[in-house]
Each structure stands twice: as C-alpha cells, then as structure tokens.
C-alpha cells in the first residue's frame, strides 16, 4: 500500500542577481510524505521541477551544517525539519535564505561576515611554546575540566544562530553567537594559555552587545545554548579584568545597586554606568521622562529584611571565588 502523502505548498525565495531586479517567491506544490525533510523536498523540486534552484547542502544528516535556512521564519537545518508539522501549523512552507548575510542567489548566502567573526576569536589552542604538548602520549583532562566545555564542542557552525540574532542585525560590532560560543570553548580549555588575553579582548570587542534574547539558543540545532555561554563569558571577563566597558559597568553597577536597598536605584545606576559626566549627557532624556514619571529621580524604598541581601552578598560576592 502506498504511504499516505500530503499536498505540500512551498513558497521559495528566488533571486538571481544576473537577471532579477528584486527577489520573488516561487510556488511549488508536491505530494510528499509528512516526514519528508524540507531539504529532500527542495532537492526534488530541483531535480523534477526547476533545475535552476540554488541551495547549499551536503550531508543530509544534520552533521555538516550546510543547509541552514529560514523555514517559516525560523532559522533551521532544512535536512532535519520535517514538512508535516510545518504544514499543520502554517498551511504552507515558506523557505528563505538565512538572515544577516547577503544573498548570492536563491537560498545561498555569502557567509564571509560569519566566518570573519569566527576567525576574529582565534578558535584554536594557543599553547605556551616553552611547554609544548607531549608528542608521545595523549594529554588528559579531568571530568570536571571536560564538564566546563558544556555543549560548545557540539557546534557545527551552521550559522542558524547568526541568522536569528537581532544584535548581529543591528550592530556590526557584535561578533555573533557562534563566534562567542567558540571563544568560550577556548577560554575554558585548560591547555590554552591565552585565557586572560582572550577575555580582555572580547570585553572590549562587542561581548556586551548581546541582547540575551535567547533566539540563538532556540535556533541552535545542536543545543549549544550560545546565549548562556555568552553570559558565562561576561562573568569570566569581569572576574579576569574588572568592569571596563559600559556594559560590564552597568552589570556590576546594577549588582551593587541591589546590595544597597534590595531594589534598583535607577538614577544611581545611570551614574555608575556613565560616570558623573555621562550622567549629564542623559539629562535631557531624564527630564523628558521625569515630567511624566517623577519617580525616576526618587531613591527607592529599602525592602524589609534588606540585611538578608547584604549577607547573601557577603557569602557569594566576595570577588575572590572563581565563577562556577
């Protein structure tokens, strides 16, 4: 008996700079089994309907990371996204190239910016030349050392995170989730000798532009959880060097603000982040807001039992304990 099929409608982004003045969406309708991966469907379209459709792919097994694209507006690997649930949810399957990278043709993007950020974090071991790794035996790590890598070694550099990232979209100085997850992997590697240098570099190199929106963590097909490793990098950078940037000063200032009264003191925080002169720069906007919301300049009340907060800080924020 033939397997049950569904009629699947695909609206595929098409753009060939040699002939098209603007992108368009081309509709294809195929009868397919619900478990068919989007990639298989696209390859069938190319083989049977339209040989001009361009896309990038290789392994078809969610290992190579080549076929990341936008499937119904989400950054996904086409090879592991089945059509059934997509049709059930959206009635059709809209396939578009990844965001945040220029389109070369159809679903193929120019990944130069993505790989440039990857190279910028120098994703390789930096060893002490005076203490090379032994050539005659493997080096070993303790289970605790291995645990610190978290899920970062699983990254297949598919760029789904980069495509989903609103910080990449808004600010070219942000290295992107994948590069930072890779950086984390080398920062916690016990063999690497450039830990401090890497942390100092990234503290001033866009680390604080992460919006912690967690879209990368949702998008990652390998559960690398980049947004959480970026958080780790922030804490490690402050521990290694202190707070040197607006972002880190804001985080530390916020932490201190709560120690005082248990609640946020908005004015005091602005001063801590920008310094007294920077505070002056915020005056115009502050006045605008103050007219409607006079509380912005008020000192918040002290919570009841605020001394408990101070004691928790005394136990856990001595500044001497290593982060995690």
């Amino acid at each position: 008996m033939a397997e049950t099929t569904v009629s699947a409608t695909f609206d595929v982004y098409r753009f060939d700079p040699a002939v098209d003045r603007a992108a368009r969406y081309q509709r294809y309708t195929l009868d397919l089994a619900p478990h068919t991966p989007v990639l298989t469907a696209l390859l069938r379209i190319r083989a049977e309907v339209d040989p001009t459709l361009s896309l990038r792919y290789s392994c078809r097994s969610a290992i190579c990371g080549s076929c990341a694209m936008q499937v119904n507006s989400k950054s996904r690997l086409a090879c592991e996204t089945q059509i059934g649930p997509e049709i059930a949810r959206h009635g059709r399957i809209v396939v578009e190239p990844m965001h945040n990278q220029p389109v070369l043709r159809d679903l193929v993007v120019d990944q130069t910016p993505f790989w440039r950020e990857y190279e910028r974090v120098e994703p390789h071991l930096k060893l002490d030349p005076a203490r090379p790794m032994p050539a005659d035996r493997p080096t070993s790590m303790t289970p605790e050392q291995v645990e610190r890598f978290k899920e970062t070694p699983r990254c297949i550099a598919c760029a789904a995170c980069y495509s989903s990232c609103p910080a990449v979209e808004a600010d070219p100085e942000f290295p992107g989730p994948m590069a930072l997850a890779k950086l984390y992997r080398y920062v916690v590697d016990p063999r690497d000798t450039a830990t401090r240098e890497r942390l100092v570099g990234i503290q001033a190199g866009g680390l604080w532009l992460c919006l912690r929106c967690h879209l990368c963590t949702d998008a990652c097909p390998k559960d690398v959880r980049p947004s959480e490793r970026i958080r780790d990098l922030k804490e490690l950078a402050i521990a290694a060097q202190g707070a040197t940037e607006h972002g880190s000063r804001h985080a530390v200032g916020f932490k201190e603000s709560i120690r005082d009264a248990g609640l946020l003191n908005e004015m005091q925080l602005v001063r801590r982040t920008y310094g007294p002169l920077g505070l002056f720069g915020q005056l115009g906007q502050g006045l605008r807001i103050w007219r409607k919301k006079p509380e912005v300049v008020r000192r918040p009340h002290r919570i009841e039992k605020a001394e408990e907060i101070e004691k928790i800080y005394a136990a856990l924020d001595t500044g001497t304990e290593a982060p995690k």
């Binding site: 804490e235 880190s248 985080a251 530390v252 932490k255 928790i312 856990l316």
Partner: peptide, 11 residues
C-alpha cells in the same frame, strides 16, 4: 533584571 546574572550567576 538579567544584569546581576551577567555579573554573578550564583548570587
């Protein structure tokens, strides 16, 4: 507010 988490997760 996410900021203390950046500075000291366990705290």
């Amino acid at each position: 507010s996410g900021f203390v988490d950046e500075a000291n997760e366990v705290l």
